[in-house]
Amino acid sequence: MRIIVHKAKCQGHARCSAQAPDVFKLDDEGYILPGDIEVAEGGQLLASRGARSCPERALELDPTPAARVVPDAIEPRVWRA
């Protein structure tokens, strides 16, 4: 399972990392680190719970990474929101 991280939408609620700290790593300001996340077998339940906890909808579950052809090409905005 993969989690698509829409970094520009992250506003630092940190609900994901409260659910699954090993899956969702935060920077020093408390916002998610950039880059999609590959979830190891066994971590999927907590990881999907974490993804579903985002009030901004910044985390998207992608259960079939192979089917995903277009990567998220939008650059994060320069200013931290």
Binding site: G12, A14, S17, A18, L26, D28, E29, G30, Y31, R77, V78, W79, R80, A81
Partner: peptide, 18 residues
Amino acid sequence: PPAHGVFRSLLNPLLSPK
């Protein structure tokens, strides 16, 4: 934004989860 982000980044670490 964008002025907001400058100050927010300054203050975020003071009240971060860590």
